[in-house]
Write a protein that binds this DNA or RNA. Structure first.
Length: 267
DNA sequence: ATGGTCGACTCTCGA
Protein backbone atom coordinates (compact mmCIF):
# COMPACT_ATOMS: atom_id res chain seq x y z
CA UNK A 1 0.00 0.00 0.00
CA UNK A 2 1.68 3.15 -1.21
CA UNK A 3 1.33 6.16 1.00
CA UNK A 4 2.78 9.64 1.06
CA UNK A 5 5.55 10.50 3.47
CA UNK A 6 5.70 14.01 4.91
CA UNK A 7 8.54 15.39 6.98
CA UNK A 8 9.20 18.75 8.61
CA UNK A 9 12.04 20.47 10.43
CA UNK A 10 11.84 23.19 13.07
CA UNK A 11 14.45 24.92 15.19
CA UNK A 12 12.35 25.50 18.33
CA UNK A 13 14.84 27.63 20.28
CA UNK A 14 13.56 25.91 23.48
CA UNK A 15 10.99 23.15 23.11
CA UNK A 16 9.34 24.11 26.40
CA UNK A 17 8.81 27.72 25.30
CA UNK A 18 7.46 26.50 21.94
CA UNK A 19 5.35 23.55 23.10
CA UNK A 20 1.93 25.12 22.29
CA UNK A 21 3.17 26.05 18.80
CA UNK A 22 4.54 22.57 18.16
CA UNK A 23 1.54 20.56 19.37
CA UNK A 24 -0.93 22.76 17.51
CA UNK A 25 1.18 22.56 14.36
CA UNK A 26 1.33 18.75 14.58
CA UNK A 27 -2.44 18.55 15.02
CA UNK A 28 -2.96 20.75 11.97
CA UNK A 29 -0.35 19.13 9.71
CA UNK A 30 -0.09 15.52 10.92
CA UNK A 31 3.34 15.04 9.35
CA UNK A 32 4.87 11.58 9.46
CA UNK A 33 8.02 13.01 11.01
CA UNK A 34 9.03 16.26 12.70
CA UNK A 35 12.72 16.95 13.36
CA UNK A 36 13.29 19.51 16.12
CA UNK A 37 16.53 21.33 16.96
CA UNK A 38 17.60 23.47 19.93
CA UNK A 39 15.27 21.77 22.38
CA UNK A 40 17.39 23.21 25.23
CA UNK A 41 16.25 20.63 27.75
CA UNK A 42 17.78 17.70 29.60
CA UNK A 43 16.29 14.30 28.81
CA UNK A 44 14.78 13.97 32.31
CA UNK A 45 12.73 17.13 31.73
CA UNK A 46 11.67 16.48 28.10
CA UNK A 47 7.89 17.07 27.68
CA UNK A 48 7.05 13.57 26.40
CA UNK A 49 3.44 13.76 27.51
CA UNK A 50 2.59 16.72 25.27
CA UNK A 51 3.63 14.60 22.28
CA UNK A 52 1.85 11.42 23.38
CA UNK A 53 -1.36 13.40 23.99
CA UNK A 54 -1.01 14.67 20.41
CA UNK A 55 -0.63 11.13 19.08
CA UNK A 56 3.13 11.28 18.51
CA UNK A 57 6.02 9.15 19.63
CA UNK A 58 9.16 11.15 20.33
CA UNK A 59 12.85 10.40 20.75
CA UNK A 60 15.36 12.97 21.94
CA UNK A 61 18.84 13.73 23.16
CA UNK A 62 19.45 16.93 25.06
CA UNK A 63 21.47 18.83 27.60
CA UNK A 64 20.92 21.78 29.90
CA UNK A 65 20.43 25.22 28.26
CA UNK A 66 21.97 24.56 24.83
CA UNK A 67 21.55 22.36 21.75
CA UNK A 68 19.30 19.30 21.93
CA UNK A 69 17.52 17.41 19.12
CA UNK A 70 14.29 15.44 18.93
CA UNK A 71 12.32 13.44 16.35
CA UNK A 72 8.55 13.00 16.63
CA UNK A 73 6.40 10.61 14.58
CA UNK A 74 2.99 8.95 14.82
CA UNK A 75 4.76 5.78 13.57
CA UNK A 76 7.23 3.47 15.23
CA UNK A 77 10.65 5.11 15.61
CA UNK A 78 13.44 2.53 15.32
CA UNK A 79 17.23 2.30 15.39
CA UNK A 80 17.68 5.51 17.37
CA UNK A 81 21.22 6.76 17.86
CA UNK A 82 22.92 10.07 18.58
CA UNK A 83 26.27 11.49 17.51
CA UNK A 84 28.39 10.42 14.56
CA UNK A 85 29.58 7.18 16.09
CA UNK A 86 33.05 7.93 14.73
CA UNK A 87 34.84 7.59 18.06
CA UNK A 88 35.25 11.36 18.31
CA UNK A 89 31.84 12.30 19.64
CA UNK A 90 31.90 15.05 22.26
CA UNK A 91 28.92 15.40 24.61
CA UNK A 92 27.82 18.30 22.39
CA UNK A 93 27.93 16.16 19.24
CA UNK A 94 25.51 13.76 20.95
CA UNK A 95 22.96 16.57 21.39
CA UNK A 96 23.33 17.87 17.83
CA UNK A 97 22.85 14.76 15.70
CA UNK A 98 20.03 12.25 16.08
CA UNK A 99 19.39 9.36 13.70
CA UNK A 100 16.49 6.96 13.43
CA UNK A 101 14.46 4.82 11.03
CA UNK A 102 10.76 5.44 10.39
CA UNK A 103 8.66 3.25 8.10
CA UNK A 104 11.41 2.51 5.62
CA UNK A 105 13.08 5.91 5.64
CA UNK A 106 16.34 6.79 7.38
CA UNK A 107 16.00 10.12 9.17
CA UNK A 108 19.03 12.19 10.16
CA UNK A 109 18.28 15.26 12.28
CA UNK A 110 21.15 17.75 12.49
CA UNK A 111 21.78 20.93 14.44
CA UNK A 112 25.02 22.11 12.86
CA UNK A 113 27.34 24.23 15.05
CA UNK A 114 27.00 27.94 14.26
CA UNK A 115 30.72 28.69 14.40
CA UNK A 116 30.75 32.11 16.16
CA UNK A 117 33.22 33.85 13.74
CA UNK A 118 35.29 32.70 10.77
CA UNK A 119 38.44 33.41 12.82
CA UNK A 120 37.19 31.38 15.82
CA UNK A 121 38.25 27.76 16.43
CA UNK A 122 34.54 26.87 16.48
CA UNK A 123 34.37 27.71 12.76
CA UNK A 124 37.10 25.17 12.03
CA UNK A 125 35.12 22.66 14.08
CA UNK A 126 32.02 23.53 12.03
CA UNK A 127 33.87 22.71 8.79
CA UNK A 128 35.12 19.46 10.34
CA UNK A 129 31.57 18.72 11.50
CA UNK A 130 30.37 18.68 7.88
CA UNK A 131 33.30 16.42 7.00
CA UNK A 132 32.33 14.02 9.76
CA UNK A 133 28.72 14.12 8.55
CA UNK A 134 29.78 13.12 5.04
CA UNK A 135 32.06 10.40 6.46
CA UNK A 136 29.14 9.07 8.47
CA UNK A 137 27.07 8.71 5.30
CA UNK A 138 29.97 7.04 3.50
CA UNK A 139 30.42 4.62 6.39
CA UNK A 140 26.84 3.78 7.36
CA UNK A 141 24.59 4.35 4.32
CA UNK A 142 24.39 4.11 0.54
CA UNK A 143 23.31 6.98 -1.77
CA UNK A 144 20.55 4.70 -3.11
CA UNK A 145 19.03 4.35 0.39
CA UNK A 146 15.95 6.47 1.12
CA UNK A 147 17.44 9.03 3.50
CA UNK A 148 16.23 12.42 4.65
CA UNK A 149 18.85 14.58 6.34
CA UNK A 150 17.26 17.70 7.69
CA UNK A 151 17.71 20.38 10.29
CA UNK A 152 19.34 23.68 11.03
CA UNK A 153 22.43 23.50 8.82
CA UNK A 154 23.57 27.02 9.73
CA UNK A 155 24.58 27.54 6.09
CA UNK A 156 22.80 29.43 3.34
CA UNK A 157 23.65 27.27 0.31
CA UNK A 158 23.62 30.05 -2.28
CA UNK A 159 23.30 33.76 -2.96
CA UNK A 160 19.52 33.44 -3.27
CA UNK A 161 19.38 32.17 0.31
CA UNK A 162 20.41 35.29 2.22
CA UNK A 163 19.24 38.90 2.10
CA UNK A 164 22.60 40.57 1.37
CA UNK A 165 24.98 37.95 -0.04
CA UNK A 166 27.50 40.58 -1.16
CA UNK A 167 28.02 41.53 2.50
CA UNK A 168 28.15 38.00 3.92
CA UNK A 169 31.44 36.68 2.59
CA UNK A 170 32.90 36.56 6.09
CA UNK A 171 29.76 35.36 7.82
CA UNK A 172 29.99 31.90 9.43
CA UNK A 173 26.77 30.90 7.67
CA UNK A 174 27.83 32.04 4.18
CA UNK A 175 31.66 31.96 3.95
CA UNK A 176 32.81 30.07 0.84
CA UNK A 177 34.49 27.39 2.97
CA UNK A 178 31.31 26.53 4.84
CA UNK A 179 29.24 26.46 1.65
CA UNK A 180 31.84 24.13 0.11
CA UNK A 181 31.66 21.93 3.22
CA UNK A 182 27.89 21.64 2.85
CA UNK A 183 28.26 21.01 -0.88
CA UNK A 184 30.51 18.02 -0.17
CA UNK A 185 27.69 16.48 1.86
CA UNK A 186 25.28 17.15 -1.01
CA UNK A 187 27.77 15.65 -3.47
CA UNK A 188 27.62 12.34 -1.62
CA UNK A 189 24.10 11.99 -2.97
CA UNK A 190 21.63 14.56 -1.62
CA UNK A 191 19.21 17.02 -3.19
CA UNK A 192 18.02 20.24 -1.51
CA UNK A 193 14.29 19.44 -1.78
CA UNK A 194 12.92 22.95 -1.20
CA UNK A 195 14.91 24.22 -4.20
CA UNK A 196 13.18 21.72 -6.49
CA UNK A 197 9.93 23.60 -6.01
CA UNK A 198 11.11 27.17 -5.43
CA UNK A 199 13.71 28.72 -7.74
CA UNK A 200 13.18 32.28 -6.58
CA UNK A 201 15.38 34.22 -4.15
CA UNK A 202 14.22 35.52 -0.80
CA UNK A 203 12.64 32.35 0.59
CA UNK A 204 13.90 32.27 4.17
CA UNK A 205 13.53 30.02 7.22
CA UNK A 206 15.30 32.21 9.78
CA UNK A 207 14.87 35.82 10.80
CA UNK A 208 17.13 37.15 13.56
CA UNK A 209 15.21 38.34 16.62
CA UNK A 210 17.61 41.28 16.88
CA UNK A 211 16.68 42.73 13.49
CA UNK A 212 13.70 45.05 13.88
CA UNK A 213 10.90 44.12 11.43
CA UNK A 214 13.17 41.49 9.86
CA UNK A 215 10.28 39.56 8.28
CA UNK A 216 8.61 42.68 6.88
CA UNK A 217 11.94 43.88 5.47
CA UNK A 218 12.93 40.46 4.17
CA UNK A 219 16.10 40.27 6.28
CA UNK A 220 16.35 36.50 6.50
CA UNK A 221 18.33 33.38 5.77
CA UNK A 222 17.44 29.98 4.32
CA UNK A 223 19.59 27.88 6.65
CA UNK A 224 17.09 25.14 7.55
CA UNK A 225 17.19 22.43 4.90
CA UNK A 226 15.57 19.14 3.99
CA UNK A 227 18.01 17.01 2.01
CA UNK A 228 16.83 13.79 0.39
CA UNK A 229 18.84 11.17 -1.47
CA UNK A 230 18.36 11.45 -5.25
CA UNK A 231 15.94 8.60 -5.77
CA UNK A 232 13.77 9.76 -2.90
CA UNK A 233 14.00 13.41 -4.03
CA UNK A 234 12.70 12.28 -7.43
CA UNK A 235 9.48 11.36 -5.64
CA UNK A 236 9.12 14.70 -3.84
CA UNK A 237 5.74 16.29 -4.59
CA UNK A 238 6.00 19.54 -2.61
CA UNK A 239 8.11 21.55 -0.18
CA UNK A 240 7.19 24.76 1.56
CA UNK A 241 8.05 27.16 4.37
CA UNK A 242 5.25 27.69 6.89
CA UNK A 243 5.37 31.24 8.26
CA UNK A 244 2.14 30.71 10.22
CA UNK A 245 3.78 29.92 13.58
CA UNK A 246 5.81 33.14 13.32
CA UNK A 247 2.55 34.99 14.07
CA UNK A 248 2.17 33.23 17.44
CA UNK A 249 2.56 35.09 20.72
CA UNK A 250 6.08 33.76 21.32
CA UNK A 251 7.49 32.60 17.99
CA UNK A 252 10.81 30.91 17.37
CA UNK A 253 13.24 32.83 15.19
CA UNK A 254 13.00 29.90 12.72
CA UNK A 255 10.05 28.67 10.63
CA UNK A 256 8.70 25.20 9.96
CA UNK A 257 9.97 23.71 6.69
CA UNK A 258 7.99 20.85 5.13
CA UNK A 259 8.63 18.31 2.36
CA UNK A 260 6.23 15.72 0.99
CA UNK A 261 7.06 12.57 -0.95
CA UNK A 262 5.04 10.00 -2.88
CA UNK A 263 6.87 6.99 -1.58
CA UNK A 264 6.27 3.33 -0.74
CA UNK A 265 6.19 4.16 2.91
CA UNK A 266 5.49 1.25 5.21
CA UNK A 267 4.77 3.21 8.41
C1' DA B 1 26.05 52.04 11.74
C1' DT B 2 29.03 47.22 14.19
C1' DG B 3 23.11 47.97 16.83
C1' DG B 4 19.10 44.69 18.10
C1' DT B 5 15.95 40.31 21.14
C1' DC B 6 15.21 36.12 22.89
C1' DG B 7 15.87 31.76 26.15
C1' DA B 8 18.07 29.44 29.94
C1' DC B 9 20.23 30.32 33.86
C1' DT B 10 23.57 32.83 36.80
C1' DC B 11 24.71 36.73 35.92
C1' DT B 12 26.36 35.78 31.07
C1' DC B 13 26.34 33.05 27.17
C1' DG B 14 24.86 31.53 22.69
C1' DA B 15 22.32 32.56 18.59
Amino acid sequence: MEKAFSIATFNANSIRARLPIITQWLIEHRVDCLCIQETKVQDADFPIQAFSETGYNVVFKGQKAYNGVAVASPHKIENVSSGFGDGQDSPEDMTRLLRCYIGGIHVVNAYVPQGKAVTHPDFTRKLLWFGRLRSMFERSYHPDDPIVCCGDMNVAPGAKDVYAPERMGNHVCFHEDVRAALQKVLDWGFVDVFRLFHKEEGQYTFFDYRMPDAIKKGLGWRIDLILATRRLAHEAVDSYIDMGPRKAARPSDHTFLVAEFAYAFTG
